[in-house]
Design a protein around this nucleic acid. Sequence first.
DNA 1: TAATTCGCTAGACCGA
DNA 2: TCGGTCTAGCGAA
Length: 801
Amino acid sequence: MKAHLIDCDYITRDGRAVIRLIMKRNRFLRIYDPKFEPYFYAIPRAGSLESLKTAISHISLLVNAERIEPERIETEEKLLFGKKATFLKIFCKHPSHVRVLREHVRGLADVYEADIVFSRRYLIDRGLTPFDLLEFTHKGKELKKITKRGEPEGLTLRTLAFDIETYNPIGAPRPDKDPAIMISYADEESGVLTYKPIPLPFVHKVADEKAMIEEFCRLVKEKDVELLLGYNDVEFDLPYLRDRAKKSGAELRLGRDGFSSFKVQQRGLFKHAKIAGRVHLDLYAVAKFLALIGAVKTRRLTLGEIYNEMFGEEKKKVKKMDIWRMWDGSEEDQKTLAEYSLHDAIATKKIADKVVPLEFALARLAGASLPDVCGATTGQMVEMLLWREAHAQNRIVPNKPDKDEVRQRESMPVQGAYVKLPEAGIYDNLAVFDFRGMYPSIIISHNIDMDSLNCDDCTDAEKHVSPLGHKFCSKKKGLVPSVLERLIDERDRLKKELKSLKPGTPEYEAVFAKSQAFKIISNSFYGFLLYSRSRWYSRPCGESVTAYGRHYIQETIRKAEEAGFKVLYSDTDSVVLQLGSKPKEEAIAFMKKINSELPGRMELELEGFYPRGVFVGKKLAGAKTAEVGAKKKYALIGEDGRIKIRGFELVRRDWSRVARHTQQKVLETILKEGSKEKAVEIIREVISDLRDGKTKLEDCIIYSSIRKDIRHYAVTSPEVSAAQKAIKAGIPVQVGSLVGYIITKKGKTISEKSEPAELAKDYDPNYYIDHQVLPAVLKIMKELGYSEDDLKGSGKQTTLF
DNA sequence: TAATTCGCTAGACCGA
DNA sequence: TCGGTCTAGCGAA
């Protein structure tokens, strides 16, 4: 039989763990593999292997009336930190026994690989990856033999997105009192289930709340949903439906077994909902991940904002607080509400269509199931990948560090990248070069790996010596470089393939998602080397990566200057050159020369030519002496007119829109039109609007997040003050909340004047002029010869007024 | 209970 | 009131 592997877990039969595989042919099916046992490794700290084996074999414990002892012990030769060593492999009856036995064995020996999830152990040891096409023989539901047959072929999952609306007369709905009023769903078709007669073609009216919940379950069953999608439904929709089902006497039968609802598993900081026989994904977790890696940049991670960002169109909006009123209101209100509800499900589905291919690719890459990678951090995925590769190379996986070790690692950070101080000014005719995937290419080209450090496999003269003097083997490829090299090779191949495909087609999107997955993971390896809780932490490796980075970028700067270019700026892996009178070809020739001298896979790339760029000065504490350029803050305009902006207030969410917009317009005017007069005109108008109270309150909101418990703040900053006022008014503010606040006229300090956006009635024009708009534009105007006094206008003659 | 370091800037806070 | 230091958030890479 041929089928695709979807997911894997285990059940317990007669005290033994039995692996359960979820596979898909035309429908989902379950196959059991009873022939796989949990195990872990041990190696003596001192003494002989034999005596340790004897000691372990005698362990026999009674825990909760259950006898726990090793099933059998084998010996196995593995690589421990690159060196061969013989280990005891201790097999157990059940994964829970591993947890008990490892603690006892720890008293006698060093223990390894005793903290891996059983199902993942299975996939790794069998060499299986979710979505593989497998061929297997079976007897009844028992697996006999399983073989990998290849890449997924035409695998699709029947997908349904859903969303619920709830009655909320006091703002937040109370599951014990307030009913669910609508359930919307979307796959190829979409609809809304509700129990009021709303004359819209997509609305299906049922008798009451109970019938609505059960109709939804029937729909899930009838459509034989394989992938159920929600947005924040683990926290909200699913538990709410469960509570309402209980209250109304409905059965929430979501599972494919026909009777179960869902189970919530705590996974790290967030929860995961498991629905029997189906794959469930909460897209909120995906959104969080995308925000973490900077793929989406929204103020809040709400469905609406994510949708807006991804599709550049507004999702239908209703005021949350008004939902109950609309439900009780006119037919028109109810229609609007139903349309809104429908669109929530459709938006969820559309987001899924965009992000599920990426999750799919990440799952394939990390070798974990969709629910496992969905919401996993890059660090977790790097670990999954390394664990798999370590097994393939017969290496023992290092243990996680203990608390003291973590503290020790955190207490000694390593020196990072080099950033060149720019000179403030406006420049013409620039070329930007950067190292392609600098850190990954450094790791590969110098074989940076904890196992290749000070190896015995080559002589000192043959070794790669980092600028800090660490020596890496030049003969045997380490684990990290070998995995990384494979990733980079594969990504290069995908990028080539992409060129032959048409953007917008499903093939293109699938390959693009794959390529993104490879990029995300490749870029995370360096961080993982210096991550204090990493199993593969290595300070010498991590600091060698950055030291090589500093070395190569500084060499590039030196050679550029030698070749007669003025190097305006450089940050980590990039250089900005001023061409002056030199033709572009000379810059290209320079790049080629650099590349001819670089080792291995390292490569300097042309990022682009820019006709003009602005570097601004840094605000100096107190001293009004010589202007110093600011790092990480510049704007360049490309030959196609596109502007590349870094670090300016306008890219920061903790600045008001009025300041950000004004700064953007000023930058555009100067870069595109080169007109200072027009820039001044823009500023003048904004300031006059602010003065006259014409600026929209909404444009004055400043957003900032509350990153810890509100009581733990040492200083009462404006956002903290606003948060306190919000809490007082009954608006909840949790850790991680983004508070929007406005500086009002009332109060002395900025904090006193700060009010939550929801409560603010006015704004303080002086604050927005002096502390938002002017500082933002002043930096730029200064480069055009306008002084602070020119712009501020202290009553005397000014350029602005 | 899951990647890093470098850098800018504000507003609070504190002492002279 | 001034200037320096500290806390905190966010972005660049």
